[in-house]
Every structure is written in C-alpha cells, then in structure tokens.
C-alpha cells in the first residue's frame, strides 16, 4: 500500500513537472515579449534590456525554466544589489500589470473561490444524487421523465447563459435578490448569502445534471444485480434493501468523480466568477487573460494542475478504502 502511494506520488511529481514545462514553453515561445509589455508606451531599447536582465529574460530557455521552478521551492531574487527584489517561496513571480506577487494575489482570492466551490458542491451532490435516486427508483414514471429532461437541459445549458437568465429574472425583473456584492460573511450574513446564492446555483446546475444521470444509471445497474435478489429473498424490508444494498455500490463510483470534479472547479468557476463579478481565482484568471498577464496565468494553470493531480491520488486512496475488492486482496 505504502509503495503504491509512493509510486503514485512520484508519478504525480512527474506529471506536474511536465505540465509546468509545457506551460513555460508555451509562454516562452508563443507569447509576445513581456519586457516590451512591462515597459509600456514610452520605452527605450535600453530600458527593455534592463528589464530583461532584471527578470532574467535574457537567459536561455533551460536556465529561465530552472529559475522559475526553483523559485517555487526556494524563492528567488530579481536583480542585484540595492535594486534587488526578493520573492519568497513559493514564488510564482510578479504580475506584469500590478507588480504584486502572484502567490499573494492567488492566496488573497482563494477564500471567495473556496466559498463558491464548497457551496456549489454541496448543492450539486444533494440535487444530483437525490434526483438520480428518485429517477431510478421511479423508473419510467413522470418523475423519472421530469428529472431526466431537466438533467438533459442542465448539461446543454451553458452556465454563463443560465447566469444571465437568473440575474435578469431574479434581480432585474422580480427583484427577489439584490445585485451580487462582494461582502464577507461577518460583514453582512444575509447579503453574503444572497450574493452567493445565484453563483452557487449556476455552478451547481450543470454538475447536478451530470450526476443525476450517472447516479440513475448506477442505481438501475445495481438494482438488476443478483445480490439484490438475495437481499429480497432474505426477507429484508424494501427500504433496507435499497439503503444498504443498492446505495453503496451505486454511489461509490461517484466519490471518484466528485473528487476530480471538485479539484477541477477552478476551471468551472472561472466563468461563474466572471459573470457575477466574484473576486476569486477564476476572475483573476479571466482578468489576466484580458491583459495578457503571463505570470498570473501561469501561476493559476500550475495551481489548477496541482489540484487535479493531488485529487487524483486522494481519490485513488479513498476508493481503496471504500471498495473492499480493492482494499483486501483475494484469498
């Protein structure tokens, strides 16, 4: 077991290195010169050279990559002497636009993204699993059709469209909700809740739709298994049969899916945060794209990759504990 985890960790480090290398290569070769961008409109060739040497942009590719990589673990120093700027580990460089540390920028916006992600995840698990179960147990009835049609719409509706639709209906037309504002929970709990309600709903809808489809298929699959017949033949109550024997086999695969989807939320939340003006990591990414702020885009990409890779390992380990066929070797 320990060896398996160790091997997975090594593989994960390899994947992360590859991703960082690819990302670095993309910006190194494909993107316009950052020095020109930093320098601004009134710029002399001398100034550009100066910026280049300060940021280490005049070095060959591998050295730049190495500096970037080692900066993440040990921090790095830009420039020399009195003009030197230090960047503590984990250093992802400085924004071309605001000169802030990318690490600080991301950390500062994490709470908003985490709030959004956790609320949405709770909603979509509830709706997805509930809907899927209802649909499977009432298979072929009006309930089933209603849930599945909603789910089909849910996976077909782009979430920015849903966001605009909700905002237009609930805020502009019906005035049930105020315009979303960036307040913290301690400042004004009600306004905080009202501001996050739509983003949670929008982000959760698509996932809930997908999950209800998957849960329905899994439950119907499980209900057809022979051990369900055994459970009934034992004379167990129908609810016990469903709860104990059908639920666990049907929902265990959902754990894997959920781990990966939750870790991948940085991508999913990007649009939701942008549309609702939530100042999270997703909006930071979208803003940085608009301004071509490479260090920030790169930092977020690496963070997103790291989250997915770590989640992958966690999910595998969790799954081992949930499925006895994997946990216990057969005799």
């Amino acid at each position: 077991m320990a060896i398996t985890i160790l091997r997975r960790l090594l593989a994960a480090v390899g994947v992360l290195l590859l991703i960082s290398l690819f990302t670095f290569m993309i910006f190194f070769w494909l993107s316009p010169d950052p020095a020109v961008q930093i320098c601004g409109k009134t710029c002399t060739p001398e100034r550009i050279d100066q910026i280049r040497s300060q940021l280490g942009l005049d070095l060959p590719f591998w050295q730049q990559y190495w500096q970037f990589l080692s900066g993440i673990f040990t921090g790095r120093t830009y420039g020399e002497g009195a003009a030197a700027i230090t960047c503590a580990a984990p250093c992802l460089g400085f924004s071309f636009q605001t000169n802030e540390s990318v690490t600080d920028m991301i950390v500062a916006r994490m709470p908003v993204s985490v709030t959004l992600a956790v609320g949405a995840a709770a909603l979509w698990l509830l709706a997805g699993i509930g809907g899927g179960l209802l649909s499977a147990v009432k298979q072929g009835t009006g309930w089933d059709r209603a849930v599945m049609t909603t789910a089909l719409a849910g996976i077909s509706l782009p979430n920015y469209f849903v966001a605009l639709l909700l905002q237009y209906l609930l805020v502009v037309q019906l005035r049930w909700l105020p315009f979303p504002q960036s307040v913290t929970f301690t400042e004004d709990p009600l306004l905080w809740f009202q501001s996050y309600l739509m983003p949670w709903l929008v982000l959760a809808f698509g996932y809930a739709a997908m999950y209800s489809r998957i849960v329905r298929t899994n439950v119907i699959d499980t209900l057809g298994q022979n051990f369900m017949r055994t459970a009934k033949a034992k004379g167990l109550d129908a609810p016990v049969v469903l709860r104990r024997h059908a639920l666990r086999p049907s929902l265990t695969p959902v754990v894997t899916l959920f781990g990966m989807d939750f870790a991948g939320l940085l991508g999913g939340a990007l649009i939701t945060e942008t549309v609702f003006g939530l100042n999270g990591v997703g909006k930071l990414t979208a803003d940085s794209i608009a301004k071509n702020d490479q260090p920030v885009i790169m930092g977020v990409t690496l963070l997103a990759a790291a989250l997915v890779v770590v989640a992958n390992i966690l999910v595998d380990v969790t799954y081992t504990y949930l499925d006895p066929r994997v946990r216990v070797k057969s005799a």
Partner: peptide
C-alpha cells in the same frame, strides 16, 4: 485541467 490549459494556450 483542460479548460484552464486551453485558455492559457489560446491566450498565449
């Protein structure tokens, strides 16, 4: 994280 990476790639 394909969406983020597609964005990074396309923005570059």
């Amino acid at each position: 994280p394909s969406l983020i990476f597609m964005i990074a790639l396309l923005s570059a």
